Amino acid sequence: MTINLIFRIAAVGILVSVLGTVLKHSGRDEQAFLVSLAGLILVFLWIVPYIEQLFETVEKLFSIG
């Protein structure tokens, strides 16, 4: 995992937090929820390959498959 991924995740977190706060204060709670959900999905899509790699490594380590 590179440090670049960690910085991207942090940037998305900050952006989602700011946008969510602005949207909530303007009375758009539904859009704030959708922004949070979109940020979560984006980060999840970024880390799925690393999770897959982790499971493959564990499988090789314990000779499961």
Rank of each mutant, 00 (worst) to 15 (best):
M1D: 10
M1K: 02
M1W: 01
M1H: 08
T2S: 10
I3T: 13
I6F: 10
F7E: 15
F7C: 12
I9W: 00
A10Q: 14
A11Q: 02
A11V: 02
G13N: 13
I14Q: 06
L15S: 05
V16F: 06
S17R: 09
V18S: 02
G20T: 12
T21F: 03
V22I: 13
V22E: 08
K24V: 02
H25D: 03
H25E: 11
S26N: 07
G27K: 11
D29Q: 12
A32M: 10
F33P: 00
V35R: 00
V35H: 04
V35I: 15
A38I: 00
A38Y: 01
L42W: 07
V43Y: 01
F44I: 09
V48N: 07
V48A: 08
P49Y: 05
I51W: 05
E52I: 14
E52S: 12
E52H: 10
Q53R: 15
Q53I: 11
L54E: 14
E56P: 01
V58H: 06
E59W: 01
E59T: 15
E59R: 15
K60R: 14
K60A: 07
K60Q: 15
K60N: 15
K60C: 13
S63E: 13
S63C: 11
S63D: 11
I64H: 09
G65Q: 13
